[in-house]
Amino acid sequence: MAAAEPDGLTKDLQSAEFLNGEIAGFWKYLKRVGDRVYIAITAWDGDHYLIELTCDNYSVEPCLGRFVDPESLACVESAWPQGNETFGAWFKWQPANFFICWPGDRGGIAHHADWRQQKYWQQTGNPLAQYMEFLRTCLTVRGNGYRPRNKL
Protein backbone atom coordinates (compact mmCIF):
# COMPACT_ATOMS: atom_id res chain seq x y z
CA MET A 1 0.00 0.00 0.00
CA ALA A 2 1.28 3.47 -0.85
CA ALA A 3 2.01 5.81 2.06
CA ALA A 4 -0.65 8.45 2.64
CA GLU A 5 0.10 11.80 1.05
CA PRO A 6 1.10 14.34 3.77
CA ASP A 7 -1.51 17.03 4.30
CA GLY A 8 -0.88 20.67 3.32
CA LEU A 9 0.04 21.72 6.83
CA THR A 10 2.62 18.93 7.14
CA LYS A 11 4.11 19.92 3.78
CA ASP A 12 4.40 23.55 4.83
CA LEU A 13 5.95 22.59 8.18
CA GLN A 14 8.65 20.89 6.11
CA SER A 15 8.97 23.67 3.53
CA ALA A 16 12.22 25.56 2.95
CA GLU A 17 10.56 28.88 3.91
CA PHE A 18 9.49 27.54 7.28
CA LEU A 19 12.72 25.64 7.97
CA ASN A 20 14.88 28.65 7.01
CA GLY A 21 13.16 30.69 9.72
CA GLU A 22 14.04 27.95 12.21
CA ILE A 23 17.66 27.78 11.04
CA ALA A 24 17.96 31.56 11.36
CA GLY A 25 16.73 31.29 14.95
CA PHE A 26 13.55 33.31 14.46
CA TRP A 27 11.15 30.53 15.48
CA LYS A 28 11.07 26.89 16.57
CA TYR A 29 8.39 24.30 15.87
CA LEU A 30 7.43 22.53 19.07
CA LYS A 31 4.53 20.19 18.42
CA ARG A 32 1.34 19.46 16.55
CA VAL A 33 -1.87 18.27 18.13
CA GLY A 34 -4.41 17.49 15.44
CA ASP A 35 -4.96 20.72 13.52
CA ARG A 36 -3.11 22.82 16.10
CA VAL A 37 0.58 23.64 15.84
CA TYR A 38 2.69 25.23 18.56
CA ILE A 39 5.64 27.36 17.55
CA ALA A 40 7.95 29.41 19.78
CA ILE A 41 8.93 32.76 18.31
CA THR A 42 11.73 35.02 19.49
CA ALA A 43 11.45 38.80 19.76
CA TRP A 44 14.35 41.23 19.24
CA ASP A 45 15.07 41.28 22.99
CA GLY A 46 15.53 37.49 23.02
CA ASP A 47 12.25 36.79 24.82
CA HIS A 48 10.15 33.89 23.52
CA TYR A 49 6.42 33.69 22.92
CA LEU A 50 4.35 30.64 22.08
CA ILE A 51 1.88 30.93 19.22
CA GLU A 52 -0.88 28.35 18.83
CA LEU A 53 -2.12 28.17 15.25
CA THR A 54 -5.40 26.35 14.71
CA CYS A 55 -5.28 25.33 11.08
CA ASP A 56 -8.30 23.15 10.32
CA ASN A 57 -9.24 23.32 6.63
CA TYR A 58 -5.68 24.55 6.08
CA SER A 59 -5.06 26.96 3.21
CA VAL A 60 -8.76 26.98 2.29
CA GLU A 61 -9.39 28.93 5.50
CA PRO A 62 -6.85 31.07 7.37
CA CYS A 63 -5.32 29.80 10.60
CA LEU A 64 -6.43 31.21 13.93
CA GLY A 65 -3.47 32.50 15.96
CA ARG A 66 -3.40 32.96 19.73
CA PHE A 67 -0.50 33.34 22.11
CA VAL A 68 -0.60 30.80 24.90
CA ASP A 69 1.21 30.09 28.14
CA PRO A 70 4.05 27.58 27.50
CA GLU A 71 3.09 25.44 30.50
CA SER A 72 -0.70 25.43 30.57
CA LEU A 73 -1.30 26.29 26.87
CA ALA A 74 -3.99 28.66 28.14
CA CYS A 75 -4.56 31.89 26.25
CA VAL A 76 -3.81 34.46 28.94
CA GLU A 77 -2.78 38.10 28.79
CA SER A 78 0.74 37.42 30.09
CA ALA A 79 1.41 35.11 27.11
CA TRP A 80 0.84 37.88 24.58
CA PRO A 81 3.57 40.16 23.32
CA GLN A 82 2.64 43.75 23.99
CA GLY A 83 3.77 47.13 22.80
CA ASN A 84 2.84 50.61 21.81
CA GLU A 85 -0.09 51.84 19.76
CA THR A 86 1.46 50.69 16.47
CA PHE A 87 1.96 47.17 17.83
CA GLY A 88 -1.52 47.22 19.35
CA ALA A 89 -3.03 47.67 15.90
CA TRP A 90 -2.09 44.01 15.18
CA PHE A 91 -2.13 42.34 18.57
CA LYS A 92 -5.15 42.51 20.85
CA TRP A 93 -3.97 41.30 24.24
CA GLN A 94 -6.94 42.56 26.25
CA PRO A 95 -8.44 39.48 28.04
CA ALA A 96 -12.00 40.09 26.89
CA ASN A 97 -10.96 40.32 23.26
CA PHE A 98 -7.84 38.29 22.38
CA PHE A 99 -7.21 38.23 18.66
CA ILE A 100 -4.70 39.08 15.94
CA CYS A 101 -5.89 41.87 13.69
CA TRP A 102 -4.35 40.85 10.39
CA PRO A 103 -6.08 39.73 7.18
CA GLY A 104 -4.23 36.40 7.22
CA ASP A 105 -5.75 35.42 10.58
CA ARG A 106 -9.20 33.92 11.13
CA GLY A 107 -9.81 36.11 14.19
CA GLY A 108 -8.87 39.21 12.22
CA ILE A 109 -11.35 38.28 9.52
CA ALA A 110 -14.07 37.69 12.11
CA HIS A 111 -13.65 41.36 13.06
CA HIS A 112 -13.28 42.65 9.50
CA ALA A 113 -15.61 40.65 7.29
CA ASP A 114 -14.54 42.60 4.18
CA TRP A 115 -11.06 41.05 4.45
CA ARG A 116 -12.33 37.59 3.56
CA GLN A 117 -12.64 38.34 -0.14
CA GLN A 118 -8.93 39.36 -0.31
CA LYS A 119 -7.89 35.78 0.56
CA TYR A 120 -4.71 37.29 1.94
CA TRP A 121 -3.58 33.95 3.43
CA GLN A 122 -3.50 32.40 -0.04
CA GLN A 123 -1.21 35.01 -1.56
CA THR A 124 2.12 33.25 -1.04
CA GLY A 125 1.12 29.60 -1.44
CA ASN A 126 2.44 28.85 2.06
CA PRO A 127 0.06 30.28 4.67
CA LEU A 128 2.13 28.91 7.58
CA ALA A 129 5.40 30.54 6.50
CA GLN A 130 3.51 33.73 5.60
CA TYR A 131 1.99 33.81 9.10
CA MET A 132 5.35 33.23 10.81
CA GLU A 133 7.04 35.87 8.67
CA PHE A 134 4.33 38.35 9.68
CA LEU A 135 4.93 37.59 13.36
CA ARG A 136 8.70 37.77 12.89
CA THR A 137 8.49 41.20 11.31
CA CYS A 138 6.29 42.52 14.12
CA LEU A 139 8.55 41.12 16.83
CA THR A 140 12.00 41.84 15.40
CA VAL A 141 11.69 45.19 13.59
CA ARG A 142 11.88 47.62 16.49
CA GLY A 143 9.88 50.31 14.74
CA ASN A 144 6.82 48.05 14.89
CA GLY A 145 6.54 48.91 18.56
CA TYR A 146 7.02 45.65 20.46
CA ARG A 147 7.86 46.41 24.08
CA PRO A 148 9.95 43.86 26.05
CA ARG A 149 8.19 42.49 29.12
CA ASN A 150 11.47 42.07 30.96
CA LYS A 151 13.67 45.04 31.74
CA LEU A 152 16.74 45.03 29.51
Binding site: A89, P103, C138
Partner: peptide, 10 residues
Protein backbone atom coordinates in the same frame (compact mmCIF):
# COMPACT_ATOMS: atom_id res chain seq x y z
CA UNK B 1 12.48 48.59 5.13
CA UNK B 2 10.23 45.52 5.15
CA UNK B 3 6.88 45.81 3.41
CA UNK B 4 4.05 46.99 5.65
CA UNK B 5 1.78 44.37 7.19
CA UNK B 6 -1.89 45.38 7.04
CA UNK B 7 -4.16 45.64 10.06
CA UNK B 8 -7.48 47.18 11.00
CA UNK B 9 -6.03 50.68 10.91
CA UNK B 10 -4.34 50.52 7.53
Amino acid sequence: KPGPEPNGRR
